[in-house]
């Protein structure tokens, strides 16, 4: 599974002096659901627009299906389906006609239109004008148009933005089915960690244009492990003492964080600290949520 469907090297986008995407090295494995996570304005959409050839990178290169995007734009894009930001649609046309516009342009047989409509459960509303659709239906239509060319890669930018819980659930189920049923690799962006947590197999976290984390979702979840928090009199000396004894420790101004909560370890740590005349005020379990990790990685916690 080390085959990467999307691979970027030093992908950079500058608008004048502002660098909105900075030396991104994305690696999206085949048949994964890659969650592309970051706060609003982190550069997610800009990155996705570059992956789709809508805007040109200032620097770096993009390989999709192991081929250079700029040199093989048409042939690569014929196997990529996408949904960028808000759904695109012709309001005066029916859902069916909307898909027909794309099918005609991309030389796709008409029977495929019914297929994708069924897939996103819009068969009943197919012949109503799209301007009367609800946001959720428009979004499903957007996914149908992304799927119409039987893509091998699906790139979805905030596909659940603005939807109600049941709409979110529907889209989520659709996305999870993609790799299983059709062998499609999905890249999905979101600013909500819970969203990515519910769907993704791999995660990339972007903040201020830089990739701050990229790995399997499990790795991120493992950071979620509980830690032992000790409030001590002199954290510096306690820190170096535990360090010397070989514990995995972190320290801040008045406390220590130990990466172990096994009962025997706690007893040993407390004992050794007390023997060295370190004052202990508090011992408790510290659980980091994924949200904490996310905020920590994106450093938004500090600015609030």
């Amino acid at each position: 599974m080390d085959e990467y469907i999307i691979k970027t090297r030093n992908l950079t986008k500058k608008h004048g002096n502002v660098t909105s995407v900075n030396s991104l090295n994305l690696e999206v494995p085949e048949r994964s659901i890659y969650g592309f996570l970051g706060p609003n304005g982190a550069g997610k959409t800009t990155t996705i627009k570059m992956l789709l050839g809508l805007i040109k990178p200032s620097n770096g290169n993009i390989e999709i299906f192991n081929r250079d995007l700029l040199k093989n734009r048409s042939s690569i894009l014929s196997k990529v389906g996408s949904l960028v930001e808000s759904p695109s649609y012709y309001g005066h046309l029916s859902g069916y006609k909307n898909l027909e516009v794309l099918a005609t342009m991309l030389d796709i047989k008409k029977s495929r239109i019914d297929e994708v409509l069924r897939l996103v459960r819009l068969t009943k509303e197919a012949h109503k004008p799209v301007k009367h659709y609800s946001l959720g239906m428009k979004q499903r239509l957007g996914i149908a148009s992304a799927l119409i060319g039987e893509p091998k890669l699906l790139i979805l930018d905030e596909p659940t933005n603005g939807l109600d819980p049941s709409g979110i659930q529907e889209i989520r189920e659709l996305i999870i089915e993609m790799p299983k049923q059709f062998g499609i690799t999905v890249m999905v962006s979101s600013h909500l960690l819970s969203e990515i947590d519910a769907m993704a197999t791999h995660v990339g976290i972007i903040n201020e244009g830089k990739l701050v984390f990229q790995d399997k979702l499990d790795v991120l979840q493992n950071k979620n492990k509980s830690q032992l928090y000790l409030e001590v009199g002199n954290s510096k000396s306690a820190y170096s003492q535990l360090r010397n004894q070989g514990w995995e420790v972190d320290h801040n101004s008045n406390g220590l964080l130990v990466n172990s909560i096994c009962r025997e370890d706690i007893a040993k740590i407390v004992e050794s600290l007390v023997l060295e005349k370190n004052l202990i005020y508090k011992v408790n379990e510290h659980k980091r949520s994924l949200e904490d990790i996310f905020l920590n990685l994106t450093k938004k916690g500090q600015s609030l």
Partner: peptide
């Protein structure tokens, strides 16, 4: 038709 509801994104990511 294209400026409304940002259809550019949809048709310009096609293989044409």
């Amino acid at each position: 038709y294209e400026h409304n509801n940002s259809n550019w994104k949809n048709i310009l990511t096609g293989s044409i």
